[in-house]
Nucleic acid binder design. Structure first.
Lengths: 142, 142
DNA sequence: CTGACTGCAAACGTTTTGCACGGTA
DNA sequence: TACCGTGCAAAACGTTTGCAGTCAG
């Protein structure tokens, strides 16, 4: 599941240094915007072009290796595609946490949308609020 | 709830023709992108500027009269702010349907994110798939 | 009447494109 | 080696800004 080279080849894409760097970086931080990806990869690969990042993000999404996470009030972030999960977005520190659905959660989600009226392929479940760390910070300063 | 003039004044904003036209249009179609709004309003108000639309969308969001609905693979849409609900996005025809959460649904959603670990302010629940109309179309043609 | 708002045009930032070169399979 | 992918620079696109004139309160 972590062998990006294999995933790329399987999708008919060459495993270039740039693509592997993009995937490795996103994998290490969880979620990342285009700019963030570019600024971090350029450290190890100073010659990489922003255009290359754009082209690859698009191709990797089409190849089902990445997923776009659109957000209110900011640019989209991207993550390695994996099992369906929720996102907890902190409005104070901007951090984003994955939260995998347990059995009960999955059942709950499925029950929300009756199959006969809508054939759901995938869903996006984002919760915006204040993360534990920031809650504690505000308690201290108050 | 439908008196946009009053809502605007209450938020300290003037009820200009342009703003009322924007709100009226979004209200009539449910969800709309910036371009869509501009192209439709210009019919009745040929002098409206795209810059005005941009400025107002932003101000109306800050005034809590509109909400942004960010989507994967396309530009954000905007809707009149109302009770929390889900979105069913059809990947075939591009239509977007609101679905209000019933009591059980709300309970289900609340149970997904434990209050002690994250203080949720609002959530986005989008389901992508195929709407009933498009399902029937594909059945006929098959 | 006066400050808030509009429309215009220019500036700005972001994303896409075309092409010659380089690297993967 | 053949072709896909990269990097560059320019183009295209989307969004924001400043300002003089206009309108709602």
């Amino acid at each position: 599941m972590k062998d990006f080279s294999e995933q790329l080849n399987h999708a008919g894409l060459k495993a270039t240094i740039q693509r592997l760097a993009i995937l490795k970086y996103i994998g290490s931080v969880g979620h990342s915007s285009i700019d963030d990806i570019y600024e971090n990869i350029i450290r190890e690969h100073p010659s990489i072009s922003l255009a290359t990042v754009y082209k690859n993000i698009q191709m990797l999404i089409e190849a089902d290796i990445l997923t776009e996470v659109p957000l209110t009030g900011s640019k989209s972030k991207y993550e390695i595609k994996k099992e369906e999960h929720m996102h907890l977005v902190c409005q104070v520190c901007g951090s984003m946490e994955d939260r995998v659905l347990d059995k009960a959660g999955q059942a709950c989600i499925v029950s929300l949308v009756p199959m006969e009226s809508f054939d759901t392929k995938f869903s996006q479940l984002n919760f915006y609020g204040i993360c534990k760390g920031c809650q504690e910070d505000s308690t201290q300063s108050a």
